[in-house]
Simulated scan of single mutants.
Amino acid sequence: MTASVQWPVWSATARLLVTEPAALPEARVLTERLLAAIDLACSRFRPDSELARHPAGAPAPVSPLLAELVRTALSAAEASDGAVDPTVGGAMAALGYDRDIAEIRVDDRDLPVTVVPGWQHVMLTGTTLTIPHGITLDLGATAKAYAAHRCATDIAVKLRTGVLVNLGGDIATAGPAPHGGWQILVQDKENDEPCTISLPAGAAITTSSTVRRTWRRGGRLLHHVLDPATGLPAARTWRSVSVVADRCVDANTLSTATLVRGPAMVRAHGVPARLVAANGSISTLGGWP
């Protein structure tokens, strides 16, 4: 028997399931507390966030949490050969995504020409961070997946329960799973063909999408997954990519990189993946599901 609760967070929905119903209230408190800490550490939309207040151009100390979030983003960039690059923040803002997605209005101006500086310019040594002038970090691609993993792990350890944390399509599990595994409905949009899989204890799954988090600029419908090579949204070859991996950040890195550069990296890692093309056709890899 499981118990669940959900609530809005970060322009998405947080959903929490536990195998010990009595643990649910405290599990939610732990989750909300950590999500609030991560938001305060690295939100691109909060002038009071630690990342927004970090001085440019010189080494400066940061909190252990922000250091871990930046380290996670840089590791994802390296693992994806730059396909998932946290230095897209400036390009994202130039395209109009400089506030919460719900607050963006239609903009008739032409699309800007921007250059993504590249993650290699950001230096992190321990808890000392150097962000060169002109670089705006966007940790959103990895911070949400990191949050899901961290919340699930903390809840399982502290409350001795099986747990699933779903943060807008980034799903992490920890502790014992229900009998038969965690049943996951994989369906990006309501009119997409659904697929239900059984996720074993400790596994993670993410779905990255080009049809969610969209806005209009210069007569075009834009989405939030940028190609660092162009500074523009990745081509809509795929509508969505779902990947199963041991860690939520790894699954997110692979699903996002696939939207940007295609399925070669997923194939190389041999992980289960489900790709929905622009025309709705479905491809599966790595023994999915």
Rank of each mutant, 00 (worst) to 15 (best):
Q187D: 06
E193G: 10
T127N: 13
A148V: 04
G169R: 08
R71L: 11
E190Q: 14
W119S: 14
S75K: 08
V88W: 00
R105H: 13
S80P: 13
V106H: 13
G175D: 03
P112E: 08
S75C: 08
M123K: 14
G175W: 04
K158A: 15
V106N: 06
D138T: 06
D170G: 03
I104F: 07
L159V: 11
D154A: 09
D110V: 10
P112H: 08
I104S: 06
G180L: 10
L137K: 11
L137E: 08
G118Y: 05
H149L: 04
A73W: 01
W119E: 05
T196D: 01
G169N: 07
I155K: 03
L111Y: 08
K158W: 02
A147S: 15
V122D: 00
K158I: 06
A172S: 01
T153D: 10
T72N: 06
H121T: 13
G89W: 01
G175K: 03
G90R: 06
G180K: 07
A174R: 01
A83P: 05
G89N: 05
V186C: 12
T125F: 05
L137D: 10
G96K: 04
A143T: 13
K189H: 13
R105Q: 14
A93T: 10
D81F: 08
A77S: 15
D170N: 14
L137N: 10
T114Y: 03
A141S: 14
Q120G: 12
G168F: 05
I131L: 07
I131D: 01
G168K: 08
A145L: 09
A102K: 11
I184M: 07
P176F: 01
K189D: 10
L129W: 08
G168C: 13
K189A: 14
T173G: 02
A147K: 07
V88I: 15
A177T: 06
K144I: 13
I104H: 06
C195P: 00
D85H: 07
H149Y: 06
G181Y: 09
R150H: 13
P86G: 05
A77L: 09
G168V: 09
G175N: 04
K144Q: 12
T127C: 14
E193V: 15
A174D: 12
L74G: 12
D100A: 15
D81T: 12
H133V: 07
T196Y: 00
R150T: 07
T125Q: 14
H133W: 13
P178S: 06
L124S: 09
T142S: 06
C195K: 04
G140S: 09
T114F: 01
V163K: 04
V84M: 02
L167V: 11
L124D: 10
Y146N: 03
S75E: 15
A145F: 04
A141L: 02
D98G: 15
P117S: 14
P178R: 01
P132S: 14
A83L: 15
V88T: 15
D107H: 07
K144D: 11
Q187H: 08
A177W: 03
A177K: 03
T153W: 04
D138H: 02
V165A: 11
V88S: 00
I135F: 08
D81W: 04
D108C: 02
L139Q: 07
I171E: 01
G96Y: 05
E193K: 11
Y97T: 01
P178N: 07
A102S: 15
D100L: 15
T142C: 06
T127K: 05
D85T: 09
